[in-house]
Design a protein around this nucleic acid. Structure first.
Lengths: 225, 225
DNA sequence: TCTGTCGAGATTGTATACACTTGAGCACGA
DNA sequence: TCGTGCTCAAGTGTATACAATCTCGACAGA
């Protein structure tokens, strides 16, 4: 808040409608309101959010270049679907980038950021039985590591990967025992970062993602039958 | 009239104008027709390409989410500018990902792909004195490696990085001696891939990018004075 | 001369109108 | 009954019209 030097109150933050639409649609996809493979009609979204099709189209175009949607000429947009191969490739990318982020964090992290990581790690202990809450805390934990790597492109790319993986419903923490192992893996990552051991941090992070991948693929197998 | 049934020739490929605009503007930025920091007016682009502002806006929105443009509310778009820190971060990302791609290629590449790499490498020998042509061949060489890694997300991300780095004018091959060292480095990468030595390939690729970074930063220093 | 306020023009943001493509349903005939 | 072709509604792609906001310069007052 820039204080009240000017009596000018910005009641309308003048947030472009297109950005609003983008956030709402992304949130809807993450929440599973729109399911993978489902078609999205521009006019339906426009009516839902009370805007015209113009900002809707701009928002959808951007969501498409993020990989969340898929355009087909004259046939509209559909929520992207991930086949098994894509999931594998996404996790491979995550392993590379989470590893790199952890390695960089081990070198560049500051005391304050380290403290945040420790608090988040212990906070997660309280949610071992609540998959959704745990997933949220852990997401913050990972983001804190990404941020500690001090490379905005790395952070952005990891963000995009997370977005894409959000197309998969549910969380791996609902699998028995996964929450506890994940917590162990997180402890190993943090310990390596704290010890400023870049190689160990990278390795621990890669292992962590690979373990998550195994669980996720098992979940997919279970669904496919 | 749906006319003849068989020789379906789509005279008008029905290429959405927005895609056309996107390509044209991207090309213009790469060619330096639009320079970093320069403002782009929607109506000017619309007139230039003979379309209305609607597809132009969609194209610009997508180019922005690629990082090539930067939006400011009600102030239009400007071509993104890279400060020294951003260049460093971009090269750090490239080192990570080119390394990963080379490592994966060493494991997954097929004989045909290997052959393509060898041909590209020897083709480059003929362009050591033509920086622009050399840059083009070398870009193809790198893309072939990315492709051989068989991970579409890795390839896409590397593509995005290349796009962003295209904001820097000129090529590092115009620096005396750089073309020859780059060629040496490429040979080292290919040798490691051919030997199926994943670790060596990753290391060689990282070194290559780091060498390119040093040259690039020296060029920036020279420009800044 | 300097400072701050207030338009006018320019430019972006949004809505609406229109053109083009697609695909599903229906009528018709074999 | 099944195929075939046609019509037309639904929905996307594009253009145009209008509203909101910013920039920049002129001008009044100190």
């Amino acid at each position: 808040m820039t204080a009240k030097i000017h009596p000018i109150k910005r009641d309308a933050p003048a947030a472009p409608r297109a950005e609003l639409v983008e956030e709402q649609v992304r949130a809807a996809i993450h929440k599973g309101l729109y399911k993978p493979g489902e078609r999205i009609r521009e006019s339906q979204v426009a009516e839902w959010l009370g805007v015209s099709r113009t900002p809707v189209r701009e928002a959808l175009r951007r969501l498409e270049s993020e990989g969340l949607l898929s355009f087909k000429s004259w046939r509209g947009v559909v929520v992207a679907e991930l086949d098994r191969q894509q999931v594998i490739e996404l996790y491979a990318m995550r392993a590379i980038l989470e590893g790199a982020a952890a390695g960089l964090a081990a070198r560049h992290i500051g005391e304050a950021e380290l403290h945040v990581l420790e608090r988040l790690l212990s906070r997660a202990d309280g949610f071992l039985a609540q998959p959704d809450r745990l997933a949220e805390v852990n997401r913050t934990f990972h983001q804190a590591i990404h941020s500690a790597a001090h490379n905005r492109y790395l952070m952005e790319t990891l963000n995009g990967l997370r977005n894409s993986l959000a197309l998969l419903q549910g969380t791996t923490f609902s699998i028995a025992g996964r929450a506890e192992s994940a917590q162990d893996e997180h402890r190993a990552i943090l310990a390596a970062i704290k010890a400023r051991d870049s190689d160990a941090a990278e390795l621990a992070a890669r292992r962590h993602i690979q373990a998550a991948e195994r669980t996720r693929l098992a979940m997919l197998f279970a669904m496919d039958g």
